[in-house]
Design a protein around this nucleic acid. Structure first.
Length: 424
RNA sequence: CGGGGCGUGGCCUAGUGGCUAAGGCGCCGCGUUUGGGACGCGGAGAUCGCUGGUUCGAGUCCAGUCGCCCCGACCA
C-alpha cells in the first residue's frame, strides 16, 4: 500500500483525552479512531493488525482440533432467562426491546447461545467430546470504558467452548486450550503469567487468567517470580497493604515466604471450567452407556483481541512510537524515498514492486510533499519491523538503507539484494 | 454508580463581561526546499457542544442538558 492512497493520517500532537501510551500511539499513527466512549473504528492499518492476530489465534486453535463457528450478537431474552443470567448479571448486560416490545440482549459472551445450539447436536456420550470456537463481537454496557482499546463496550473476542462427559474430559479440553493460549501469546510477542482466578459470575470449578504484567493494567497481582496470584485472593486490595501483618501472614501461607512483589497486570485471556452451570440450567444433557442422563460438562476460553493489541503496544514501544513484533505488524517493511529526484523515485517504485512480487508486505510512503523528517518520524511512529530508505545518497552507491525498528543502527544493502535480505 | 476534570475550525491551545474570536499543527495555491517533524507569500475553514436565562452587551456569568477523559466501585 502507498501512503498517498491509504485511508490513514498521522498526527504529531497527543490528543488531550489520552493517558495510556498504547492509546496515544494507536491514535496518532492512524490505526484507530474513536466513535464514542468504548467504541473504536479500526482504520486499515489497525485492521491489518487485528487480522494478523486473528489468524494466529485461528491457527493455534486449529492445531488443537477446534472447529470454527459463528453465533449472533443480538439474542432473544429467552436463552438468558433460561440460564438465569438475565437477572443475575446486572446492568452490564445490554438489554433492549424491539418494536413488539419483546426483550433482547446483546451478547456479552456466548455460553447461552452455544449451549442452545449444542442441544441440537449432543444427546449421547457418543457425541462427546466437542470443541468449538468463534471470533465474534461482544457488547457490554461497561460503566467505565477506558484506556483506548483496553476496555471497550463493543469488542472482538475469541471465545471457545468445550463439551465433555465428565471432569476428566474437561481437564483434557482445558489443558488443550491452555497450551494453545501459551503459544498464541508467545507468537504475538507478549509475556504472560498464568494465574489462578475466581470463577465469578461464570460459575464452575476452576479458572485461570493470562496476565500481562504492565503498570497500566487494571488487575492487581502478587508474584514471587515463580508463582503469581490475584491480590484479592491474598486479601490485599491496595499496594500499601502488602506490608501489613495480616497480609504478610496470608502471603506466607500462599508462597511459603514473604519475598513477593505487588504488580499490575492486563488480563489478556482467561479459561474457565464452567462445569455444569449452563448445561444444568439450560438442560443440555446426554445419556451414558447405561442410558442414564447427565448434564454435559463445559468449559469456555476467551481472548480479547482489542485488548491484546493494546497490550502489545504497551509492551513494545519507545519514545518515538510503536515497535510491532513482526508476527502482528500490519506490514513488514516501511519504504520511503527522500527528495524528489526522479531517479530516486523510480528506484523506490521498483523496489516496492519487487517486494510485493516476492510476497513481502510493504507500506510505501510515496508522498512528495512530506519532508524527510516527516517521513522518518512517521516510520518510527507506525513502527513496522523494517525501514527501507532510498535517497540520492544511497542510489549513488546503487544501494538502499535498511534499519530494524528495534535496533539503533542502520546499514546499507545493494538494491538487488533488498528482496533477499527482507525475506523471512 | 460515587468523586474530579474538560468541551473554542480536523488536531493542540490562547482568550475571566466590551472592537471583526487569536496562534500553532494540519489543509489548498504559487515558489524555494528534501537524511530527523523545512521556508516565504497568498488562502479556505468556527453559528465558541446544545438549550434556556442574567445583562445595553455572553466564548466568558447562572441553570439545565449532552458528550468526552481521569480516580474509585463494578467488571462473563
Amino acid at each position: 500500500m502507498r501512503y498517498s492512497k491509504s485511508f490513514t493520517k498521522t498526527t504529531k500532537e497527543k490528543p488531550k483525552e489520552v493517558e495510556l501510551v498504547s492509546h496515544e500511539y494507536l491514535l496518532r499513527s492512524g490505526f484507530i479512531t474513536p466513535l464514542g466512549a468504548g467504541f473504536y473504528t479500526y482504520l486499515p492499518l489497525g485492521f491489518r493488525v487485528l487480522k494478523k492476530i486473528r489468524n494466529i489465534i485461528e491457527e493455534e486453535l486449529a492445531n488443537i482440533g477446534v472447529e470454527e463457528m459463528s453465533m449472533p450478537v443480538v439474542q432473544p431474552a429467552r436463552i438468558w432467562k433460561e440460564s438465569g443470567r438475565w437477572l443475575e448479571v446486572g446492568p452490564e448486560l445490554w438489554k433492549f426491546q424491539n418494536r413488539s416490545e419483546e426483550d433482547f440482549a446483546l451478547a456479552m459472551t456466548h455460553e447461552e447461545a452455544v449451549t442452545d445450539a449444542a442441544k441440537q447436536i449432543i444427546f449421547s456420550y457418543k457425541d462427546l467430546p466437542k470443541i468449538v470456537n468463534q471470533i465474534q463481537i461482544k457488547v457490554r454496557d461497561e460503566a467505565r470504558p477506558r484506556g483506548g482499546l483496553l476496555r471497550l463496550r463493543e469488542f472482538l473476542m475469541q471465545d471457545g467452548y468445550s463439551f465433555d462427559k465428565d471432569e476428566a474430559g474437561l481437564d483434557k479440553s482445558y489443558n488443550l486450550f491452555m497450551e494453545a493460549y501459551k503459544k498464541i501469546f508467545a507468537r504475538v510477542g507478549i509475556k504472560t503469567a498464568i494465574i489462578e482466578s475466581d470463577t465469578g459470575a461464570m460459575g464452575g470449578s476452576g479458572a485461570h487468567e493470562f496476565m500481562m504484567i504492565a503498570k497500566s493494567g487494571e488487575d492487581k497481582i502478587i508474584s514471587d517470580g515463580k508463582r503469581t496470584v490475584n491480590a484479592e485472593k491474598v486479601g490485599i486490595a491496595r499496594e500499601e497493604d502488602i506490608d501489613s501483618a495480616p497480609a504478610r501472614a496470608k502471603i506466607k501461607e500462599f508462597f511459603g515466604h514473604n519475598n513477593v512483589e505487588f504488580m499490575r497486570g492486563i488480563e489478556v485471556g482467561n479459561i474457565f471450567k464452567l462445569g455444569t452451570k449452563y448445561s444444568t440450567s439450560m438442560k443440555l444433557q446426554y445419556v451414558d452407556e447405561k442410558n442414564k442422563l447427565h448434564p454435559v460438562v463445559m468449559g469456555s476460553y476467551g481472548i480479547g483481541l482489542d485488548r491484546l493489541i493494546a497490550s502489545i503496544v504497551e509492551a513494545s514501544h519507545d519514545d518515538k512510537g510503536i515497535i510491532w513484533p513482526a508476527s502482528v505488524a500490519p506490514y513488514r517493511v516501511h519504504l520511503i524515498h527522500l527528495g524528489d529526484n526522479y531517479k530516486v523515485i523510480d528506484a523506490a517504485t521498483k523496489i516496492y514492486d519487487e517486494l510485493w512480487a516476492a510476497g513481502i508486505e510493504t507500506f510505501y510512503d510515496d508522498r512528495d510533499e512530506a519532508s524527510a523528517g516527516d517521513k522518518l518520524n512517521d516510520a518510527d511512529l507506525i513502527g513496522l519491523p523494517y525501514r527501507l530508505v532510498v535517497s540520492e545518497k544511497t542510489i549513488a552507491k546503487n544501494s538502499a538503507e535498511i534499519k530494524a525498528r528495534d535496533k539503533k543502527t542502520a546499514s546499507n544493502i545493494k538494491l538487488d539484494e533488498v528482496v533477499k535480505t527482507l525475506r523471512e
